[in-house]
């Protein structure tokens, strides 16, 4: 009987290990899952209807927040001066910046227009992966979009997006460095907040 118990214990441990391996998601899977969820929401008839669109947009924002790490985005866009931010400022900044990106990019989608996303390869550093995709527009134009990802919270999260090889993080970094040379972190956060609100109200109108 003792032997049986020992074996049972070993068996359980063995399966636990298997389960743990299954948890380790590949970055590509994580990204595909997120993108498909967003695409499904955009394709749905509820999105085409202006009355239910804002509710759908809320759902998209939730999925985006699950797959994009705005804290990681923020510290990269601020650059070396991030260390001079207080933890509260860092939190405020991340939230404001996340809102700005969601309001300007995600909510800009008017509806599904037959765009196709295809996987075009990936390259990896030590703990960073870049997943390359191509968005094929209806007119035949192809836009390369790459997502840079890092492992976090048991999954992989996006920390930079490159459209046509132009990094979103780098573009904002050059702006923020310029602004932070003459303003305080608080002033920058305030500017980001007002820009995010501006984007939100302009969507509400259209």
């Amino acid at each position: 009987m003792r032997h049986f118990k020992l074996q049972a214990l070993i068996l359980i441990l063995f399966f636990l290990c298997l389960v743990q391996k299954a948890w380790a998601i590949e970055p590509r899977q994580a990204l595909e899952g997120g993108l498909n969820q967003v695409l499904d929401l955009i394709k749905s008839p509820a999105y085409a209807d202006p009355k239910t669109r804002s509710a759908q947009r809320e759902k998209i924002a939730v999925i985006v927040k699950q797959n994009f790490d705005f804290y990681e985005f923020s510290l990269r866009t601020v650059g070396p001066k991030w260390r001079q931010f207080t933890p509260a400022q860092q939190k405020d900044f991340s939230e404001a910046f996340g809102d700005l990106l969601i309001n300007t990019y995600v909510n800009k989608i008017d509806g599904y227009n037959g765009e196709q996303i295809s996987y075009a390869g990936e390259r990896s550093g030590k703990d960073r992966t870049e997943i390359m995709t191509v968005v094929a527009m209806k007119g035949g134009k192809k836009i390369p979009v790459a997502y840079r990802m890092l492992p976090k919270d048991g999954t992989w999260k996006v920390y930079d997006v490159l459209v046509e090889g132009i990094s979103l993080v780098k573009n904002y970094r050059s702006q923020f460095q310029d602004i932070l040379n003459s303003s305080t972190p608080e002033q920058l956060i305030e500017r980001i907040r007002s820009k995010a609100n501006e984007a939100k109200t302009s969507h509400a109108k259209s």
């Binding site: 700005l100 990106l101 300007t104 990019y105 780098k170 573009n171 904002y172 050059s174 702006q175 923020f176 310029d178 602004i179 920058l188 500017r191 980001i192 820009k195 984007a199």
Partner: peptide
Amino acid sequence: GAAIDPYISMRD
């Protein structure tokens, strides 16, 4: 539209 400082964003 998405830029905080559109001039710098465009330049970059």
